[in-house]
Design a binder for these strands. Structure first.
Lengths: 173, 173
DNA sequence: TAAGAACCTGACGTTGACGTAAAGATGATA
DNA sequence: TATCATCTTTACGTCAACGTCAGGTTCTTA
């Protein structure tokens, strides 16, 4: 249901790709490509309530929490993508929201660091630090994913073996 | 919509094996290899309450539901194994107990058929029927498992790619 | 500018998957 | 045979992850 690979902008001042040509033929809500909570919910296949709940749980970083004038929440395409990833991890890894928070809290920190990165060029040493942290974070997620993959592969093997046996008995009574 | 992850705190206590170790200083409870609910719970890493709940939900077949004299539940090794599989599917696929029930309800039917198989030799035609049903059932499970596998592989690829980029930037600033 | 759609913040309700406590029956063991 | 661990049912409690309703505000559009 979510075919879009859409990798996170892992660094550099990319940011571009303003998805202004989004669905409905309406004026840009946030003067830029920002979307309102209802549209975001439809896009990622959830409800506004859930998004607010995730914010309450601290799963959406500072940026997504910040509120523009008027009090209505607005989300950049990056934030929408971030939400998608959260949901994907939730569904595929089957972790609780709290575990999910721990799992990605480094990611939130990374977003902050990225800002620092963009604004004032950090020194060589600082850059290394930031990149290493991102690396450790990715390794953490990868370990979880690979663990799951291993278990699922084992299960697949067992099921396949059973299937093979049933088929054998179908051929030779 | 949400598959609702298991509320269990620690992932898997497993601690399988030691099937005979528990029988070290105790007489066989069910005159055969049958175990009582507490032992079963320890073996599969859950609680008696959960096992009773699964029975209540109809996840344990007729056999496991049948009660010997005294009213205490007794489980054969096969039934213990069945419970293990249920828990594994629950954890790995992250499905609700209701979905789990649908997913394996054919399995329950299969258990009944197997009994029939053992007791009176079914005719060639009937055997075919039974085997074909088992096959369809296995295919159903396999499809779900493989679907999950595909999604997880995609996720792994994406994470690996990000990792690669971070490492590249670590080498060449 | 007036209406209606969408959003806001509480705050209480719901559902699934169990936990837990009570009061008594059963089983194993000394 | 007494004692104690384990089992039984019944029933209420809990926790996460939202759903839903109320009363008010903001946006968008005719």
């Amino acid at each position: 249901m979510t075919p879009a690979p859409a990798t996170r902008p892992s660094a550099s001042a990319s940011a571009s790709a303003s998805a202004s040509a989004s669905a409905s033929a309406s004026a840009p809500p946030g003067a830029r490509g920002e979307l309102r909570i209802g549209d975001v919910a439809r896009l990622v296949g959830t409800t506004p309530r859930t998004i607010r709940y995730y914010e309450e749980m601290g799963l959406l970083g500072e940026a997504a929490t910040a509120r523009p004038a008027g009090g209505h929440r607005l989300y950049t395409p990056d934030e929408v993508q971030w939400l998608r990833e959260l949901i994907r991890l939730r569904d595929l890894l089957g972790v609780s929201l709290e575990q999910l928070g721990e799992l990605v809290e480094a990611e939130a920190a990374r977003a902050l660091l990225r800002e620092e990165w963009d604004r004032r060029q950090p020194g060589r040493e600082r850059r290394r630090e930031i990149l290493l942290e991102a690396l450790g974070h990715l390794d953490g997620q990868l370990e979880l994913v690979r663990d799951r993959l291993g278990q699922l592969r084992t299960l697949e093997d067992e099921l396949t073996e059973r299937r093979r046996r049933v088929k054998a008995r179908l051929r030779s009574p």
